[in-house]
Write a protein that binds this DNA or RNA. Structure first.
Lengths: 111, 111
DNA sequence: GCATGATGCTACATTATTTGTAGCACAGGA
DNA sequence: TCCTGTGCTACAAATAATGTAGCATCATGC
């Protein structure tokens, strides 16, 4: 399993070697489209194309790259025939983000 | 300069016009270093340089750009003499992220 | 006054990443 | 067979980040 290698290899998750998992996580989630992808998968599995559509037609290059990273990170998995879905761990993460929806509404009404 | 233009103009926050605030928020938070900056400000105000240091010496260009965006978004504010700190709104957002610390620990121990 | 050091912030060339478009191989279904 | 949809890749152009240097301003010490 080259999981740690892939993610700590070419680019790696910043901070993954610092012994501060939170930094690695923030780096992973802070890459473009990552949060959005997780968000779009919150309710049901989506095929790679449905996911691209849901993400405002983001380019397949990034979406595919992010999906690889998220799969390496154990947050997303591919179910052949059914598309991508959040893993148990991924759903757990998602649950921490759900209140964000509520916050975003109030945030958008700021002066 | 061109602050409003930076965030609502040339590029803007993706999804800000879709009537889906959550998308705009996810886009904002999904830019490199944004989450990390918010995280580093969670406890105390930091000067721009202290912030750079805390963020593994990220380049001043990005840090400054992110700070501008976050100030525009009303999540961070500059207190002359004391550096940057989260606004009330920003702290509210931070509170939703605090459980992430706990999650990150478990996540890093995944098989 | 004058240097010193810290602040917020910018310039700019190099490097990395994203975008947009096209396309591949494979697996059903008609 | 010819469609259509899947996951995924190639590649050039556009965009963003990095790393280094430096600016103007302000406060302190001398």
């Amino acid at each position: 399993m080259a999981k740690q290698a892939d993610i700590a290899g070419k680019r790696g998750v910043r901070g993954s070697r610092t012994g501060r998992p939170i930094m690695a996580l923030l780096d992973l989630l802070g890459r473009r489209w990552t949060l959005r992808i997780i968000w779009e998968l919150r309710q049901e599995p989506l095929t790679s194309r449905a996911l691209r559509t849901a993400c405002d037609e983001a380019s397949p290059t990034v979406v595919q790259a992010r999906l690889s990273e998220l799969r390496e990170a154990g947050l997303v998995e591919l179910m052949p025939g059914d598309g991508y879905r959040l893993t148990l761990l991924g759903r757990e993460l998602m649950e921490r983000f759900l209140p964000l929806h509520h916050f975003a509404e109030r945030w958008s009404r700021r002066s």
